[in-house]
Design a protein around this nucleic acid. Structure first.
Ligand SMILES: [Mn+2]
Ligand SMILES: [Mn+2]
Ligand SMILES: [Zn+2]
Ligand SMILES: [Zn+2]
Lengths: 142, 142
DNA sequence: CATTGTTTGCAACTTAGTTGCATAATATGA
DNA sequence: TCATATTATGCAACTAAGTTGCAAACAATG
């Protein structure tokens, strides 16, 4: 982990008015060093260090609340989490990108450059958020 | 439950080469009488009758395998299930519709007439399935 | 209606997620 | 830098979710 990233993390936490703790820094490092979305179990067995399950749950919830990470829906029992872009704030998320889950390697990634197309709901429905999850085979697994 | 629906259910099970059992019929009745997607807990505490949790899990899995129902992804721990349209078969699902989850009433419904728009993935990705889940406020809750 | 294969329910288990509370760590400002 | 107030963490104990093996019950078939 570079010093640059360490500084980023500190800044990110400060900007969200969160105190800078070991767990939070380590979990953010993990996010930054991974190129896919992470599921809950990834955090407990992290690099020698063990984090209490409860702390991980609470940390992820805090990050969600603050708009630091977003969650990606699944039909199995493993919700995934990924870092939000810097434009996301506590009350205004901008995660309008598509998520891709590879059926081969199981990896889930954010396709940041693939826009979510417009959806026209029937009359009477108010839209707050759209989640698009595409499954298939990824670049690497082809 | 009308006789017509009972006949439909029997036919549906037979078409999928599944034997006609109490649990399967009751769970399909529940689907047909509900206008939203159902989560797992809905099935256990059904109308006086109690179903074993294990049986419910196995029945839903069987229905998924046979293309009788489809699952709707969530970011909480309550995957929802809904009946497939008749065109769905074991190896060829046609669930290209949008799902809507109301943040007020919690209800999840299939917007059967709202098509999933085309998505253009980056080069190298093969698409098998698209899930679109919109959250917001539904007709009734407005 | 007897036989065969499938489905169910139970027990026992694993994994996931929650809550309360005492202790430890962080932020702040004197 | 240090004392204090505030917040985060870890532990214990719990509830909920999901899985597996196996014996008994049931449905399909001729
Ligand atoms: Mn994402
Ligand atoms: Mn649907
Ligand atoms: Zn892959
Ligand atoms: Zn509603």
């Amino acid at each position: 982990m570079s010093n640059k990233n360490k500084a980023n993390i500190t800044e990110l936490l400060r900007a969200s008015k969160l105190s800078i703790t070991d767990t939070r820094v380590k979990i953010l490092e993990l996010f930054m060093n991974s190129n896919g979305a992470l599921e809950h179990s990834s955090f407990e067995k992290l690099a020698g260090q063990t984090f209490d399950r409860v702390t991980v749950y609470r940390t992820l919830q805090t990050f969600l609340d603050k708009g630091i990470i977003h969650s990606i829906p699944t039909t199995d029992t493993s919700i995934r989490y990924a870092l939000c872009k810097s434009e996301c704030t506590e009350h205004n998320h901008h995660d309008h990108h598509v998520h891709f889950k590879c059926e081969e390697c199981g990896n889930t990634i954010c396709l940041d450059d693939t826009d979510v197309p417009e959806i026209h709901l029937p009359k009477g429905y108010a839209m707050h958020n759209i989640d698009v999850v595409v499954s298939g085979v990824c670049k690497q697994c082809k």
